[in-house]
Design a binder for these strands. Sequence first.
RNA 1: GGGACCGUAGUUCAACUGGUUAGAGCACCGCCCUGUCACGGCGGAAGUUGCGGGUUCGAACCCCGUCGGUCCCGCCA
Length: 608
Amino acid sequence: MRSNNCGDLRTKDIGSNVLLCGWVDRCRDHGGVIFVDLRDSSGTIQITIDPDQGKELFTKAESLRNETVIQIKGQIRPRPDEAINKKLGTGTIEVLAEELTVLNAVRGNLPFAVSIHDEEPIREEIRLKHRYLDLRRERMNKNLRLRHQTIKAARSFLEKEGFLEIETPILTRSTPEGARDYLLPSRVCGGEWFALPQSPQLFKQLLMIGGLEKYYQLARCFRDEDLRADRQPEFTQLDIEMSFVTQEEIIKLNENLISAIWKETKGIKLPKPFPRLSWDEAMNRFGTDRPDTRYGMELKDVSDIFKGIGFKVFSNAIDKGGSVKCITVPNGNESISNVRIKPGGDIFSEVQKVGAGGLAFIRVRESEEIDTIGAIKDNLNDDQKLRLLEKTAAKPGDLILFGAGETVIVNKALDRIRQYIARELDLIPKSSDEIWNFIWIVDFPMFEFNAEENRYEALHHPFCAPNQNDLNDDNNNQEELEKKLPKARAQAFDLVLNGLELGGGSIRIHNAELQKTVLKTIGLPLKEAKNQFGFLIEALDMGAPPHGGLAFGMDRIVMLLAGEDSIRETIAFPKTQQARCLMTKAPSQVSNSQLDELHVESTWTEPE
RNA sequence: GGGACCGUAGUUCAACUGGUUAGAGCACCGCCCUGUCACGGCGGAAGUUGCGGGUUCGAACCCCGUCGGUCCCGCCA
């Protein structure tokens, strides 16, 4: 149907006869001569329609509208010197049209302009409703190409490393813990339900037990939870698992994998090894397990300085086992007014969102003078003042913001305003600056205590192996194991890039007894554990090799590579925050007979 | 489950403190134009101001509800 792609043609093609297909990107009708920018996925080229080529051709060209699909037969010729367009790869040449076939017309109004020159923002609602048109635009076209390249780079790297791409079931069973499942009723097995996988976690472990040794998959995962800019109900993980490996080996392989992706897609050579931070240190210095290290304002724990101080907000927090921490905003005296820190202010609202009661502040003036509320100033002696200035390294002009209370809340609040202020004061390098701060977070705790439910919960998932150094040397002492396990660190790790979690992994448990103990620790009775995970526990006793792996969020990786703020920009057909597809109008109602067949009855009633 | 912002022509936006006929660019339709490239010129058509209710002499604007979209909290091993 065509001889060339529009965007590939160059000066060297002058004189050749071509047959091109594509969309009318734009027309410029001068009455006597008509220029048509013809666009296909490779780019655009100018078609010139000259009245000398015949009346029929010219009349047809006059009626062209944007996005009409046409086929052009013609000859490549050079443009006149004064008509060369340097902005276009094909700008030195044009096609003199000899024949024009309209392959498909556009009727009615287009919901929005597709033309690559048109950078007007369009309401996302409309883009999603007519996603096929949106995909035709340069932004989405580019992002999906990038996504393909990313996947291709990963595949070819893993292929070279001897990995097998293996598919795992989409129809599987529901398991406890973790996110809410998407459920599917079984027609054949009445009253029973499949679940869509939240991840192929158990299957990939069973593949290792099955002796496949090196597995990967671009796995679609499903979680029925509320959405965010970086969370969709279905998303894609690059899922990897290996046998006979240490954590160190997994990390090294994946640094190479990530480097290969960045090399292939951006032409960037990433410095290796990536820096590492223990989970403890990340929480202390940044208040989060996914720190953005592109800017400073690290958290400082100043509890020791303020212990017993007359300012009760601080001393009470410390007495109750919490802490007082702070961040120092460079030149914050100038850029941040008191109004913004006090109730009603935007920065105050940020800490309020995560449950903090308020924000204390100290403004550092010239010659070590400080400016703050009376309750702090009156209770702060010179020694404390000096130690504070030393610990924070605050300079005249700087603003110190304090969080006091439960350490968890303090960390959350300060992490939040650290990010908020960095954005507000423009301290974060632009995505176009291409600063890639990868960091491994290692030594996660095995469990987190859930005070409300009075039980431990797995921080990653309950299949992560504990760090042997944190357990007794004698693994056979079950009592000792159960005592030490809750406080143990896991052989688990996350890869973080510019404050976003790209993926995580761990060494898995390959010993059935240890697996049972871990499940017991998170409050799953043996009977229930066997019911849910019996197949895994049984398999572990049949020669399970030591194994481990990790999974990357592909949508997020592509989002960062593309410099986008939402993974929706990297997914061809994403869903809205209500997990709805505006194009197909899914989810939709089904007929009663369909429900009957599935032995299901709806209890849903329309709200009044 | 909760908080915030948004919804005006096909589209992107405007419309003073609530004020009389809701405007403009692009797109669309018609006419003119032979070197433009976001071509240009002249003219035209295009609106249930998301929807429902209320306050008011009068509502795009204020209030209540509702639908949809976005961001966030909770949630997401």
